[in-house]
Design a protein around this nucleic acid. Structure first.
Lengths: 102, 102
DNA sequence: ATCAATTATCGTAATATTGCTATGAATATT
DNA sequence: AATATTCATAGCAATATTACGATAATTGAT
């Protein structure tokens, strides 16, 4: 990623925004979010919709969880993945704020 | 990135959106876009505002140009970088469309 | 008690990203 | 003509990302 000192010289909102952007910077993760927009899904249900191995999907879900765009309801042996509408809306508003400056 | 076959199984809009997201998935590139929102800038002017070497900034500019978020007006030995408001607005609308589905 | 189903994680490989220094190419200045 | 300015690119190193198969861990079913 780079030096720690470099990160410190960007504003919080710049760093936060770049992290959220990175979270949706892969078509699989966009596809996952779109699926979750329609229905809550287990990992397997997502695997069936994507051309990826289960472990890979699990990894992408982890990335989305890391920025709180989704939550995982653990009901073993399943985990039901759910959109975090709050953060989802926040990302929208952050992006809007950014683009409306122009 | 991965296999060519994998990319083909995502929709055009998913791929396009992920590419645009990737373009803004770094705080330096967000900072650059914000600078260009206020003023057209040469590479050097941007270098003076960021904690990065000239070559690194040049590379980030290249990334932004790749997705047409900015244009470079070459007036040697300078290049004046300018926001591409059209694509900028398009990214905004693409994101809005995406998020409003929820 | 076994076995199947589900998911997370580990280990690994291939590739991409990010950053730098050094350098080349083009133009302007002295 | 020599020098300075500006920018892009090449070359390189460190790290991150993306993908897979294999494997645990957990629960449900037989």
């Amino acid at each position: 990623m780079g030096l720690v000192t470099a990160v410190e010289s960007y504003s919080d909102s710049q760093v936060e925004m770049s992290k959220l952007a990175k979270a949706i910077a892969h078509p699989a993760r966009i596809a996952i979010l779109q699926l979750l927009t329609v229905n809550d899904c287990t990992c397997n249900e997502i695997v069936q919709q994507l051309p990826l191995a289960q472990s890979t999907v699990s990894q992408h879900l982890k990335e989305l969880k890391k920025v709180n765009l989704i939550d995982g309801l653990e009901i073993p042996p399943r985990t039901i993945y759910v959109l975090n509408h709050e953060v989802y809306a926040k990302l929208q508003s952050v992006l809007n704020k950014f683009f409306n400056i122009s």
